[in-house]
Design a protein around this nucleic acid. Structure first.
Lengths: 209, 209
DNA sequence: ACGAAACCTGAATCAGTTGTCATATTTTGA
DNA sequence: TCAAAATATGACAACTGATTCAGGTTTCGT
């Protein structure tokens, strides 16, 4: 009747105490990213992860209580990385519209370079929905701040920025899925140009037509 | 190294020959939708499906070769239904922009009424990616036709319609996720209004400001 | 009414998984 | 240098859940 599983069991593992431990833990996390990314969370067994990491099965449990745990940590980790990457790309953009296109370009590049992102994130949704929502809500909060700022400064049209944030996240998400992850058959600059035009003028004809 | 599994085994099951069989098959498919929708594909066992359907475990295999098969059929089924629903909603819209808002409204309503849609579809992505892509590509093809039509007729700005299709699908998808599936805390009309404004004018300020 | 075909049953099988543990090795710090 | 702490091993216990199958029940066509 219920999907949520609480960690009533599985004693939380301790952080590594030595450099070797830290290295091993990192190797396992990286291996998990690869395994989940290529095989999928369910298909990938702990044995796949440890094989990729080059450690024994038991070692996994020195650092992670469960396979699920690993996924949670991975999602948080990836979230930080994407946000940092985008924040850096957008840092000194000239105006909100420029920031949008710079951000989209950086995102498309990031997706192409890190194809595991989508898969891990999307599958996390069904393993622990809260971690998935957390990812997008954190993302959305930062986005909202920038958009609201721009609205206040009169850089963009007034409007409901919370709704716009989700519209824009969806837009980026699908463009990334189709044109960066699945098929890179359309030049990035075409995508940027199209989205730029869309954000500048919408779909409507120029008033002066 | 590879995720794709071909059906080398699993002899395809035959279609039901009698009314009773057809009924049972339909019961199972409906039960699968409920089970996958509430528990998720992996969490839901064949036993959950048969229990919900009120049949024995073995009966499941009279109509479906594998659990995966059921998911595939469900996705196709749901795809037809959504597209039919949206096509009907948009049928006699006055111009493309009106069609967009009508379509979005109908979509949000549909998602709220059929919460299984997202879950089943999204999980299908990891069970059989081709069926997932097929869903969006079919959706996109229809969308593209309408958009290209409108562009040709001079109803909307010229631009790369393939890219715009994916941008618009993403936009709808995320608005549906956030405002219809997760939380219905924002009036639908606000969403429609915001998107309508976005498609009419973009984010830029009015030229005459 | 009756044989054949279709349909249904559910316990048993079976492949594959997670997580444990007793033991071995490496690192640390005094 | 050497004992304690930390880390690593890998075989395997315990479990899960999909699929099969031999045999019963219902429906169909004549």
């Amino acid at each position: 009747m219920n999907t949520i599983k609480h960690n009533t069991k599985s004693p939380a593992r301790e952080a590594p105490k030595t450099a070797r431990g830290a290295r091993t833990r990192a190797k396992i996390l990286k291996a998990a990213e690869d395994a989940f990314g290529s095989l999928g969370y369910h298909q990938a067994g702990v044995s796949d992860i440890t094989r990729l990491a080059g450690v024994a099965q038991g070692t996994f449990y020195t650092y992670f209580a469960t396979k699920e745990d690993t996924l949670r940590e991975l999602v948080r980790d990836m979230g930080h990385k994407v946000r940092a990457h985008l924040a850096a790309a957008v840092k000194d953009a000239d105006g909100r519209l420029a920031a949008e296109t710079l951000g989209l370009k950086a995102f498309l590049q990031y997706v192409a370079d890190n194809p595991s992102l989508y898969r891990v994130l999307q599958e996390a949704q069904f393993v622990d929905e809260s971690i998935y929502r957390e990812y997008y809500e954190a993302f959305g909060r930062g986005y909202l701040r920038m958009l609201a700022d721009a609205t206040r400064k009169g850089e963009i049209r007034p409007g409901n920025d919370e709704i716009r944030v989700w519209a824009l996240m969806g837009l980026s998400n699908f463009l990334g899925l189709r044109f960066a992850l699945w098929e890179q058959d359309v030049p990035v600059d075409d995508i940027i140009a199209t989205v730029s035009d869309l954000l500048q003028h919408g779909l409507a004809l120029d008033p002066k037509s």
